[in-house]
Design a protein around this nucleic acid. Structure first.
Length: 113
DNA sequence: CACGTGACCTAAG
DNA sequence: CCTTAGGCCACGT
């Protein structure tokens, strides 16, 4: 029996944006939600990221919350995995928080359009 | 169909 | 600076 494609459109859009995040840059759930026109539903972005585990091409470690805190670090298998991935890209992380977050922040609407 | 859950965000005190 | 409360909507049960 063939599996019909379900409503992955929202997830695919989220993944597409996350994949566009340049190496060494970060963005927030809210920014992605805003870019997708779901500004008030940033939670859905986080939900989509939860499903992103099946898609290794999605750099979920580049997505943090509005304060630059690594809120999703507990979902990377190891508590330090997310931080390691970020530091591997030249991002400094201190106390689970991205340093120079405002400088490294990548705004989809501004960068893409 | 109703309810609970969640890697969030904003506003108010 | 802090905490609390509300809203948001997809998804599983």
């Amino acid at each position: 029996m063939l599996d019909l494609p379900k409503y992955k459109n929202f997830f695919d859009d989220v993944y597409a944006v996350v994949r566009l995040i340049p190496k060494g840059r970060v963005t927030s759930y809210g920014a992605i939600a805003e870019y997708l026109g779901m500004k008030s539903s940033a939670r859905m972005v986080g939900w989509a990221m939860n499903a992103a585990h099946t898609d290794p091409s999605v750099p979920a470690h580049r997505v943090v919350n509005r304060s630059g805190i690594l809120t999703g670090k507990h979902h990377f298998g190891s508590p330090t995995r997310m931080q390691e991935l970020l530091q591997a890209e030249g991002i400094t992380v201190e106390n689970d928080q991205v340093k120079d977050f405002e400088k490294l922040f990548w705004h989809p609407l501004q960068e893409l359009g």
